[in-house]
Design a protein around this nucleic acid. Sequence first.
DNA 1: TATTAGCACTCTCATGAGGAGAGTGCTAAT
DNA 2: ATTAGCACTCTCCTCATGAGAGTGCTAATA
Lengths: 348, 348
Amino acid sequence: MLDDRNKQVLLAIIDSYINKPEPVGSRFVQKRYSFNFSPATIRNIMADLEDLGFLNQPHASAGRIPTDKGYRFYVDSLLDNNASFGQDNDLCDQINRFSVKMESIRNNVDEMFLEVSHTLSTISNYIGIAFPPRHEKMTLNKIDLIRYKSSQVAAILITDEGVIKNRMLTVDPRLTQNDLNRITDYLNSEYSGCYIDEIKGDLLKKLSHEKILWDQMIEKAIRICEDAISFAADDFFISGLYDAMNLPDFSDISRLKEIARAIKDKHLIFNLLHDLADTGGIQVLIGNENQAQEFRNLSIVASTYKEGDRPMGVIAIIGPTRMNYPRAICMVDNIARCISDTLKRTSP
Amino acid sequence: MLDDRNKQVLLAIIDSYINKPEPVGSRFVQKRYSFNFSPATIRNIMADLEDLGFLNQPHASAGRIPTDKGYRFYVDSLLDNNASFGQDNDLCDQINRFSVKMESIRNNVDEMFLEVSHTLSTISNYIGIAFPPRHEKMTLNKIDLIRYKSSQVAAILITDEGVIKNRMLTVDPRLTQNDLNRITDYLNSEYSGCYIDEIKGDLLKKLSHEKILWDQMIEKAIRICEDAISFAADDFFISGLYDAMNLPDFSDISRLKEIARAIKDKHLIFNLLHDLADTGGIQVLIGNENQAQEFRNLSIVASTYKEGDRPMGVIAIIGPTRMNYPRAICMVDNIARCISDTLKRTSP
DNA sequence: TATTAGCACTCTCATGAGGAGAGTGCTAAT
DNA sequence: ATTAGCACTCTCCTCATGAGAGTGCTAATA
C-alpha cells in the first residue's frame, strides 16, 4: 500500500509530532531525519499521504499533523517489530523501582492496585487506570457468615489470592448460629477452590432444577451464597488527571474538559475496559476507534495481567491521541508482566 | 466598626459578586439594591470599605470585588441571623430526594458516603467531600479471625454501625483454629461495645504494664487485636472536579490547575478536615484562612454528622472563595443532619 | 455638614491594519 | 523522477484606535 520511502516519511512525521506538538514541515523533516531527497520531494509525499488519509493540514500554509489513521499505521508498525522496546534506561529504572514497591505491599491487593494506577500515571504523565483482579476470576478459599444483628449477617468471602470481600446480608432471623455454621460448612466443602463465576453458574443451575428435592438448609445456603458473591461491580483505581493537565495537549480548557468528562463516569471506563479483560496482550485504541463519543480525542493503551494463563484484570493508560506510543506500550506491557509475577509469588 | 449603611452596601456588593463574578460598580449597586442615596455616596462608602480592607479594585477604573476579609464579614453576618436559611425551595427538594436515597442504601456505609459526596457536588457545583464514620469513633460489635493460609489470618471487625473492616494478618503458624477461637472469644467478651479508640488505648496500657503476668494466649490475643484494629487512615470520597470546571471562576486554566492541585493530594485534605471532626457545627474557611498554601484561593464549608452527641465524621464542600455561601452553608448543614438521622435509624 | 451632580480621567476590551515568519503548491529546469 | 525557485496563503504578534464602564475629585446643594 505504501512504498518504503513514503512509510519512512510518515513515521518520521509522526515521531516528530509526538515529541513536539507542532505541525511538521517538509524542510524540518528532511533535515531532522536526514533524508537524502529534498523538501520538495517530501512535500509531494506529504500531499500523497494526506490524500490517503494519514495526515492532515490544520490550515493551507501549515505543516502536517497525523490523523488517527496515521497513528494506527504507526502503532501497527511498532507492534510488528517490537525489537525497539526497552531501550529507555530511565523507564527501566522506574519499572524496577515499581517492582520492588509491589513486592513490599503484595499482601494488600487494594494498596497494590492503587500503587499501579499511581505509577502508570506518574511515569507516563497520562491517566493511569488499574483494575484489581475481577472477583469472578478468582477462586474461593473460604466463605464465612458472621451474625451481626438478629436479621443481619456479614458474609465474608476470602479468595485464594488473599482478597477479602464482605457484604451485609439480610436473612431469616430464625436462623441460629448453628444453622449458619452448617451453611458455611456446606458451601466451603462444595465450592472451595472453585472460580467465583463458576460458582455463580452452578448456583443458578441448582436453583433452576426444581425437580430435585431440596434439603431446606441447602436451599437456604445456596440462596445466601448467591447473595454473598453478588458484589457490586468491581471498583478500580484511576489517577493522574492533575498531571495530565500539564500536557500541552490539554493546555486549552475545552480539551481539558473533554478528558475530564471522559474519566468522570466510572461506568463508561468500566465498560470500555471490561471488554478487553478476556483478550490479553497489549491493546491500543486510538481516537475514534473508541466506541464512546467521549473518547474520540483520546487514546487508550491497555494490557491484562494474568495468573498462569487466566487473565485476571486490566491496566491501562488514557492520554491524548498524540501519545508517546512506544513508551506507553513498553510501560504498560512491562507493568502488566510485573503484576503477573507478583501475583504468582503471592499464591503459594 | 461599620455603621449600618456601610454594612448594607458591603453585603450588597458581595451578594452581587456572588451571583455574577464581575466587579461591582456604584451605579449598579444603587439601582439593583434600591438604595435611597446616590451612586456618588456609594462611591465614597466603597472607598472607605476598600481602605478598611473589605473590598478590592482590580484596576483603577473598575468596580469593586470582595476580599477574603469581606467574605468573612459576609459569612459571619449570615451565621448570626440564620433565619434566612432554608427558603430555597429547589434546594429543599434536592435535599429531600437525597434523604430518601440515603434511606434506601443505609445498610452500606461506603455506598452511602459515595452518594453523599456525589450529592454535595451536584447540588453545589463545587467539590464534594464525605468522610465515612471514623473507625475510632465507632463501637466494636464483633471481631473474628479466619484462617487463610498457615501463617495468615483474615481479621474481620464489625462495628455496631454495621461497618465491616477487614485486614490480612501474619501470625504464628502454630496457632490452631481452636486457639483463634479462644482469642476472639476473649476479645469479644472484653471489648464488645467499646469504642475502637478506647480499645486501642486499653491495649497499649495492657502491653506496657509488663509487671502483670500474662496468660500467653491473652498476650497473643492482644497483639493480634492491636494489629487487627490498626487500619490504614480512613479513606474518604471526593467528587465533582468535572462539574467545578464549568464554573466561571475556573475558566482560566491556571485557576483550574490550582483547585486540581489542592484536591490531588488526599493526605492534605485529610489533615485539613480531620481537625474539624471533633469540633462539630458548621465551619467556614475562606481563602487564606486556610493554612495550606494550595487552598489560598479556595473556600471550605464543612460540618460534622453525629451519632447522639458524638461527632462521627466530616462532610465538606470546596469551592472558589466567590462561593454562594448562604446556599452552601444551608446545604452542608442539612445534609449533615440528614446523615445523622439516617445513622440513628440504622442503629437499633 | 453630609450628600450629590458634573466632569475629566483611567483602564479594559474589541477591532482592524500591517508586517514578519513559516510552509505550502505549482512550474519550469535538471 | 526530482528539485530549485517563487508567488501565495495563513497565522500570529503588535500597535493604534475608539467605545464603554466606572472611578475620583470638585463644586454646588439641602
